[in-house]
């Protein structure tokens, strides 16, 4: 187990170095930050001074090593646009994105799994057909359209929920702005979380359904029935548990997607999270932010993958054996 973890951590480090190199090359290829930052009538001397200040005159390798070294210390440089350390900017924005992603994941998993179980058991019932047809909408409608439709219905027409922003937030030790403790903050979370999680919900549901149908055909389920086990035991203790390995794999990746690529939802709802920061930095060719965002996304995915691997071992004793061997 420990050896396995060490091996996985080593692999994770390799992945991170590769991503860091890619992030660094951003600096070389995405526009010229200097021309973005100075006014049009700046002198050449002023431009050169800024270039030197940003460290753009050093040799490539040095710049790259410098970048990786500083990244390890959470120093991602100064944002070209905001003139503020990138780590501060991301730190301010991260709680908004993480809370949004957490609620969206809960929504997707909390509804997706039960619906998947139901439709997997009652594969031909009327309700199943309705749910499956509805899930097609969730899969096929683009996120921004769902967001706009929800805003139109619940914010503009019914006035039930706010249409943009985080609402009221409270601060934890000045580090973490949370919207989870006030009713205004919670109300503001509903629409963006539904928008962000809907696709994942349908994905989880469809996966659980197909896995359930697969497992319910197996001999051990038949044998369970032949022993007179209750439906509850058969569906949940045996069938659902046996669907979890593939389901957790997908959920792990999808949570990463929710955190790292909530850009569209955050834009539609003007949600002050990292995605919105990212889109602004793209418009401005604010490379330090983009590079840091890329690294952060990689960290999220690598971490989630590690968590998924550990969960595998907790669920399936056969994988534990394979790891020990």
């Amino acid at each position: 187990m420990l050896a396995f973890l060490i091996r996985r951590l080593f692999e994770a480090a390799l992945v991170m170095i590769v991503v860091a190199i890619v992030a660094f090359t951003l600096f070389r290829f995405v526009g010229d930050p200097v021309s973005q930052m100075v006014s049009q009538d700046a002198t050449i001397a002023q431009r050169e001074a800024l270039k030197a200040e940003l460290g753009l005159n050093d040799p490539l390798i040095v710049q790259c090593a410098h970048f990786i070294w500083k990244s390890l210390h959470f120093d991602f440089g100064i944002s070209y646009k905001f003139r503020e350390p990138v780590v501060n900017l991301l730190g301010q924005r991260m709680p908004a994105t993480l809370e949004l992603a957490a609620i969206a994941s809960l929504f997707a998993i909390g509804i997706g799994i039960p619906l998947g179980v139901y439709t997997g058991i009652n594969r031909d019932s009327l309700l199943t057909r309705v749910i499956m047809a509805g899930s097609l909408i969730g899969v096929s409608l683009p996120t921004f359209l769902i967001g706009i439709l929800l805003i139109y219905l619940f914010a503009v027409t019914l006035h039930w929920l706010p249409s943009y922003g985080r609402g009221e937030t409270t601060s934890f030790f000045g580090l973490w702005q949370t919207g989870l403790l006030t009713s205004g903050g919670l109300r503001a979370l509903v629409l963006p979380a539904v928008t962000l999680g809907l696709f994942q919900l349908t994905l989880v549901m469809r996966l659980v359904r197909s896995e359930m149908m697969e497992v319910l055909r197996t001999d051990y389920i038949r044998f369970g029935r032949a022993r007179g086990l209750t439906n509850r035991a058969i569906y949940f203790a045996h069938a659902l548990k046996n669907t979890l390995v593939p389901v957790i794999t997908v959920i792990g990746v999808e949570i990463g997607t929710l955190i790292a690529f909530s850009i569209i939802t955050e834009t539609v709802f003007q949600w002050p999270g990292m995605g919105l920061l990212f889109i602004q930095s793209v418009q401005f060719a604010d490379i330090p932010i983009m590079a840091a965002y890329l690294l952060l996304s990689a960290v999220i995915f690598v971490t989630l993958n590690l968590v998924v691997d550990i969960l595998y071992m907790l669920i399936d004793p056969r994988i534990r054996v394979a790891v020990r061997a």
Binding site: Y220, F223, G224, L229, H238, D316, P317
Partner: peptide
């Protein structure tokens, strides 16, 4: 299970692996 029990053909797949 209580009155009538059943044994299936393939013992490798008759038990819940988890």
């Amino acid at each position: 299970g209580r009155e009538i029990g059943m044994i299936f053909q393939d013992p490798l797949t008759s038990l819940d692996p988890l």
